[in-house]
Structures are given as C-alpha cells and as structure tokens.
C-alpha cells in the first residue's frame, strides 16, 4: 500500500523493467496499416470525385462501368487487396504471443537483430 517512501522507490525502479521487445515491431505494423488505410481513402476519393463530378453525359466507360467507379472501386478494391497481401508478407513478422520470460525475451530481441 502506498506511502511516499514506497512510491519513491517505485519511481526510481521504473526504468528497470524491460519493455516487451515485441512491441517495437507491433507498433511498426500498426503504423504501416494506418498508412495503407489513408492511401486507400485517397485513391478512392481522387478517382471517385476526380472523374465523377463532371456531368454524366461526359462519362467514359470501362467494362460498362463509368470510369470514375471502375477506377475508384473496382481497380481500387483489387489494388488494395494486392497491397494488403504484399504488406502482410513483407512487413508482418511472426512472433510468439504468449507471455515471455526474460530469457525468451532476450532471445527474441537477438533474433530480431539478425
């Protein structure tokens, strides 16, 4: 239970815990996915409104779809499925998910450096 002495001891001991070495990679993966999501939004928006806002009588068509829709949704959908596969295989690393003991954590860290 807290008294000021105990708290002090804890805050001085704060630095001693070893941060889970897996988190660095986890954070990296999360950032990559955010970038992918934003890129997906930009692609969708740029083609959809870039080509779609003119008068429908001026549309050109691909496979029957208006060009804006084809590029934004059909090509965009396929492209981002492709990018997802690429990113998952290129940047996502396999790792154990269970609690690590200090030795396993060390081993994992060394493995990451390779």
């Amino acid at each position: 239970m807290g008294n000021s002495l105990g708290n002090e001891r804890q805050s001085s001991a704060k630095k001693t815990f070893m941060e889970d070495p897996r988190y660095k990679q986890c954070n990296k993966e999360a950032i990559i996915v955010c970038v992918l999501g934003i890129a997906n939004l930009i692609w969708w928006f740029a083609w959809g409104y870039g080509l779609g806002l003119r008068d429908p009588s001026e549309y050109s068509y691909v496979m029957g779809f208006p060009m804006w829709f084809f590029m934004s949704c059909i090509v965009g959908g396929l492209l981002f499925v492709g990018l997802t596969i690429l990113i998952v295989y290129k940047y996502f690393k396999d790792m154990p998910l269970d609690k690590l003991d200090p030795e396993e954590a060390k081993k994992y860290e060394e493995g990451m450096d390779r």
């Binding site: 897996r22 986890c26 993966e29 999360a30 990559i32 996915v33 998910l97």
Partner: peptide, 8 residues
C-alpha cells in the same frame, strides 16, 4: 492491423 499482435 491496428489492434494487431499487441492487443493479442
């Protein structure tokens, strides 16, 4: 991806 392995 966002919750990712960290959440697990």
């Amino acid at each position: 991806g966002v919750l990712g392995k960290k959440f697990a």
